[in-house]
Computed example of a mutant assay.
Amino acid sequence: MPLHVAIESDTGTLDTRACERLVRETGAPVFYSPAFLRAFEAFPLHSVERGAHILVHDGAGRAHAVLPVYLQRGVDPMGALAANRPGALDHPVLLSHVWHCYETTIPALSPEAARLAVDAMGDLAGEWGASLYGAANVGADSDAARLLGAAGLSGTPLDRMWSMDVSGLDGFDAYLESLGGKPRREMRRQLRRAEEAGVRARELGVDEADLDGFVRLARATAGSKHDNADYYLPGVFQGFLGALGSCASVIELRVDGRLVAAMASLVDNTRYHLWCLGVDDGACNGFSPTYVLLAQSLRFAFAEGRPTVSAGRRNGWFKARYGFHSTELQVFLS
């Protein structure tokens, strides 16, 4: 059956059930779910001039590939354009996916459908006057990387993504036993100190969590560590989290009722994503909140039966110490 390409300008015209089925069948992460795409459309986490969803379908209407693309100018939080195409920073570029996605792929049922989606992206870049097009945060050894390379896009290293297969572990205690002696003892010591400090941890839905408090902590942490507080745009980020619904939750750590650390987590069919966090180190006397957030998130991941825990980018030394393995991420540009 021949395949056809459609350009959907907004999520209102997307066939939600078809896209959900495609994401499930291809094993694509939560960043490609209709809920995430709708949330970004309503609350764009960074500036975009135009957006579209490239949909490849057959004559019966079945979705075979979907590729979200965004025309943007001067948006480069990871320095990908500055390092590879500095002249493009002042011009519109068409990229997939959004910068807050650390696992970019091409959800497709076949190589043919994926190729059609990438070709359509190139055509759309020409129509929209983009100076270049491409994809960021693509696994270096993925099918998407090979297809983008075959399409003539040049891939260069960008960062590393961290994940852990926990399917063979029977809960958090088994996870602790799988660690080396020093990391295991340090985790237990930090959890004991947190308990002595009166830390209370809860996982809350986005309709119950203190989203303003989370964004305040996340902005402070991003600003002090990466000089990038606006990765969490005030007002916009709260709205985005709220729009995700059941795809997202927030782990809150409180001492005497005060919010001292928080982590926003995302879920899909197979993964529990430790997406982003914020901490008030000055309010965490005698313990490190990062250990407590990791322990709590792993407990919830085990309870929900997610075989993979994804921990995003950066802080590799800590993640490697606690069982996560890295994958090289690349940026592909025309």
Rank of each mutant, 00 (worst) to 15 (best):
S163H: 15
S163I: 04
S163F: 04
D165Y: 03
D165L: 04
D165S: 05
V166L: 11
V166T: 08
V166H: 02
S167M: 07
G168M: 07
G168N: 03
L169A: 03
L169Q: 08
D170F: 06
D170N: 13
G171A: 10
G171T: 06
G171E: 09
G171Q: 08
G171I: 05
D173K: 13
D173R: 15
D173F: 08
D173I: 08
D173T: 12
A174C: 04
A174T: 02
A174V: 04
Y175H: 12
Y175S: 10
Y175E: 07
Y175M: 02
E177G: 12
E177R: 15
S178G: 03
S178Q: 10
S178A: 15
L179S: 03
L179G: 02
G180T: 03
G180C: 05
G180V: 05
G181Y: 03
K182F: 04
K182D: 09
K182A: 13
P183I: 05
R184W: 03
R184A: 10
R184I: 01
R184G: 07
R185N: 08
E186D: 13
E186S: 09
E186R: 15
M187L: 15
R188A: 14
R189Y: 05
R189M: 09
L191I: 07
R192C: 05
R193E: 10
R193N: 14
A194S: 13
A194H: 06
A194E: 11
E195D: 13
E195K: 15
E196Q: 12
E196R: 11
E196T: 05
A197D: 03
G198R: 07
V199H: 08
V199E: 06
R200C: 13
R200D: 11
R200V: 15
A201W: 08
A201P: 00
E203T: 09
E203Q: 10
E203A: 11
L204R: 13
G205C: 07
V206T: 06
V206A: 08
D207A: 13
D207I: 01
D207N: 07
D207S: 11
E208T: 13
E208R: 15
A209T: 02
D210W: 01
D210I: 03
L211K: 09
L211C: 05
D212K: 12
D212L: 12
D212H: 11
F214T: 01
V215P: 00
V215A: 09
R216D: 09
L217A: 11
A218I: 02
A218Q: 00
A218R: 01
R219I: 06
R219C: 00
T221V: 06
T221P: 00
A222N: 13
G223A: 09
G223T: 02
S224A: 14
S224D: 13
S224W: 04
S224F: 06
S224K: 11
K225D: 10
K225M: 10
H226R: 14
D227I: 04
D227W: 01
D227K: 11
N228F: 10
N228A: 15
A229N: 05
A229H: 02
A229Q: 08
D230R: 14
Y231Q: 14
Y231E: 12
Y231N: 09
Y231W: 14
L233K: 14
L233E: 12
L233V: 12
P234Q: 01
P234K: 07
P234G: 06
P234I: 06
V236R: 01
F237G: 00
Q238S: 15
Q238G: 15
Q238V: 06
Q238T: 10
G239M: 02
G239D: 08
F240E: 02
F240N: 01
G242S: 14
G242D: 08
A243M: 13
A243C: 09
A243Y: 02
